[in-house]
Simulated assay, not measured.
Amino acid sequence: MVAVLGILVTWGVMSAGATHPHKLPCTFPAIYNFGDSNSDTGGGSAAFYPAAPPTGETFFHWVTGRAGDGRLIIDFIAEQLGLPYLSPYLNSLGTNFRHGANFAMGGTTIRNLNESMSVNGVPPFHTEIQVVQFRQFKQRSARLFKLAKRHGDESEIRRLPRPQDFSKALYTFDAGQNDLSAAFRTMTNRQFVAQIPAIMDELAKRISILYEEGARAFWIHNTGPIGCLAVTLRNLPKPAPPGYLDQHGCIKSQNDMAIEFNKQLKKKVDQLRKKLPLAAFTYVDMFSAKLKIITNAIKLGFLDKASICCGYHENNNHVWCGNDGVINGTKIHAGSCRDPSSYVSWDGVHYTEAANRWIADQIIKGSFSDTLLPLSQACHGPTPMTT
């Protein structure tokens, strides 16, 4: 397989300078999000074990269930659209679903993995379950909204989505990284490549179901450069074997798999555009956006790309963020750094709020979108590139 990393990075740069005909801004009354911990605003914490400090310390100043010190990219997307932060579907308290819901769950994969391949030993709420939850949410909320209207319960009405808003909402997807992580543990790269078409078919089924439910605007993130995760970079073999690292100092084989995965995802999105002609699809090149901040970390005012704010990860000894452990007979508490804003990586796997903000700023303006349209125009179809 020939890596196309240079093409992907060039695409992001070209898109930033491209122009497109004027289109009116879209009015998105709600967001419905599906994915993994990169966009989980508390679903995993509600479903399994509650999250613990120091997560959430930067912006929320309390534990929200997000994998980071503050806001995620999905939070900045909501801000850009003038909408509240998304309530996790599984949260039983403090929820307001008028402007959407978040079905994302830490550990989520696109396909349904068996327990031996699950992420972190917990069978995740894969995307099929998330879409089932959405359908139930849509049906039950419509019934409750009707009852609230009948009884004049204004407080209940304000908490529930308006039935007509489902077709006007933005539907966001950010999943795939855990499919890659599970594959690296259980199969060869060649075996995984052979399975990617089936994974894409599964994702297409989920999107088609949402389309049948009235969804019309889709914002789909590809997967990031998993071979550049800080927790990996801090534990590279020394010296690294010839060909083990790519030109950015990341694990080449893992990034090659992410690139192939994204190539097939882009192809599937193009197919869905033809199959579902009433929908607008935006394919967002998160790989290039994240690679840009990782490889230019110091130039952008961050510490080195291998620096981790929270947790202990040295010589293949790991104590994850907020946990206690024993290293070489010494008890340690893996707390956070003094200034998370100077780090790209929060815990070795997830990004800090500062990094998420930088990435969000890039993708929101359309710099890494195949449609060349900003988030505010994501209800429109692709625009031919002109430079």
Rank of each mutant, 00 (worst) to 15 (best):
S208F: 01
I294R: 13
A204Y: 01
F48V: 10
R158V: 07
S181Y: 08
H126C: 12
P277F: 04
T330W: 00
D40V: 07
A289G: 06
D347H: 06
A3G: 11
L245N: 09
G106P: 05
W219Q: 08
N317E: 15
H318W: 13
F192W: 12
A182M: 02
F218Y: 14
N189K: 07
V131G: 00
T330E: 11
T108P: 01
H313G: 01
A194W: 10
R143E: 14
K331F: 11
A194I: 09
A3M: 11
H248Q: 13
P277V: 12
I110M: 12
N102R: 04
A230G: 13
W358K: 15
A183L: 03
T186F: 03
G214H: 09
L72T: 14
E213P: 01
V319H: 05
E115L: 08
G6A: 08
G12A: 15
I364P: 10
S336T: 15
N38V: 12
S92G: 09
P161S: 09
A3L: 13
N114A: 00
T223E: 10
D347K: 02
L72Q: 15
T386Y: 06
I308P: 07
A289E: 10
Y85K: 06
S367N: 10
N222S: 10
A280I: 07
K252D: 14
K299P: 01
W219T: 08
A240N: 03
A360F: 04
